[in-house]
Amino acid sequence: MTTRYTKDHEYVRLEDDAGVVGITDYAQSQLGDVVFVELPDVGKSFKQGEQAAVVESVKAASEVYAPVSGEVVAVNGDLEGAPATVNEDAAGKGWFLKIRLANAGELDGLMDEAAYAAFVKSLG
């Protein structure tokens, strides 16, 4: 199972032919208590780096960018009633959306687990 990370703290995990997109555990810890997640409509397409979702904590709203280009094939409807799932299990049940990759080559430009861990460490 391949997972890649962005410098904006999104992850994309390849499952079958889709990428599961969410924010990292580091990102949720920085945001604090998540109280609302605005998700896109299924069928919408994004280019890599475009704003795909918004995550709201008690304090502020933060944009979530598409880590790869492609079409949204599913969103995590459970977050509507239980946004705190993002805090509890960011890498698992707290996923945001599934995207059908338009260009798998984009993954090569993202960080792997070790590179992302080093990147987070460098942030202090």
């Binding site: 604090g32 208590d33 904590s57 008690v58 304090k59």
Partner: peptide, 12 residues
């Protein structure tokens, strides 16, 4: 201090 370890929700 904006928040402590437990976070804004728990502190509130």
């Amino acid at each position: 201090p904006i928040q402590y370890a437990e976070g804004i929700l728990a502190e509130h």
